[in-house]
């Protein structure tokens, strides 16, 4: 979260309409899932990459690092699907063993299916990553406010977001303090330090929540965060046109 938000805040896309970016990302996501074809998945991935790197000016290295990490994870979770079980050995079997009561192995159609699924997942994840690296969290929250998402939901997201940052900062500073007093010098000492950190973080979390609540009240905070957004965004028509084009193409294929 930390890293993604920082990238988003530095990207050139930060000045462009969050609504258009959301529409583009989610629209493309639905195209990928809805049309369910390998060329569509590949095209979507390429388009998203092009816009992230070329338009939003997120460095290609960063983008591919994020994608690689997630793809590896996706790939690992798909391994189980590599194997097909049938009653008897199918015609397109590539490798397998006969086992009572049937056959377990890898088939050509199974591989195609797996490839398709993997590509589709990667493309779908890429769509969401595009949003993550081009749109800071607070823009998304404001967007939700503007389109009248339930207040409770928005407040929860808002507090959680702010809280995650506080927690992260506390964690960082406590860990640094421990490290500078040799708290992680050996495995055993490290374990104890980590345990202390965990316990302390829990108390600190509670105190910080309490303090935030107090200052919320001191500034007359009511039941929910008042809406305030003034940053104006440029329209991002190129995203919308591309999305429309992609829908038409996907329908034609």
């Amino acid at each position: 979260m930390n890293v993604l938000d920082r990238i988003a805040n530095q990207s050139r896309a930060v000045g462009y309409s969050p609504a258009h970016k959301v529409l583009f990302a989610l629209g493309l996501l639905f195209v990928v899932i809805g049309f369910d074809k390998i060329p569509v998945s590949i095209a979507a991935f390429l388009i998203v990459t092009l816009f992230t790197v070329g338009w939003a000016r997120v460095s290609a290295a960063t983008w591919f690092k994020i994608m690689l990490a997630q793809s590896t994870f996706l790939g690992l979770s798909l391994i189980a699907l590599l194997f097909t079980t049938t009653a008897s050995q199918p015609a397109d079997a590539l490798w397998g063993v006969a086992m009572w009561p049937g056959w377990v192995g890898v088939t050509e159609s199974g591989l195609w299916f797996l490839g398709e699924l993997f590509l589709r997942s990667v493309a779908a994840v890429a769509c969401l990553n595009f949003l993550a690296v081009t749109t800071p969290m607070h823009d998304l929250i404001r967007l939700a406010q503007r389109y009248k998402a339930p207040e409770l939901l928005i407040d929860l997201i808002l507090l959680t977001y702010r809280f995650i940052w506080s927690l992260y900062e506390t964690l960082q500073s406590m860990r640094t303090a421990q490290q500078s007093r040799l708290g992680y010098s050996s495995f055993k000492v490290g374990l104890r330090s980590a345990a202390q950190l965990g316990a302390r973080l829990f108390i600190r979390t509670y105190q910080r929540m309490d303090a935030l609540n107090t200052s919320w009240e001191a500034r007359l905070g009511g039941t929910s965060m008042p809406i305030w957004h003034t940053r104006t965004h440029q329209a991002a028509y190129s995203l919308l046109v591309t999305l429309a084009g992609m829908i038409v193409l996907a329908a034609l294929i």
Binding site: M137, H138, L158, L159, S166, L220, M225, P226
Partner: peptide, 25 residues
Amino acid sequence: LVFQSAEDQLFATTVEEDIAFGPLN
């Protein structure tokens, strides 16, 4: 009231939003 720890009294996401909080209330 301005509290001793600045970190514990800012809850909006951006600076502008945080300053707007009180006046909007």
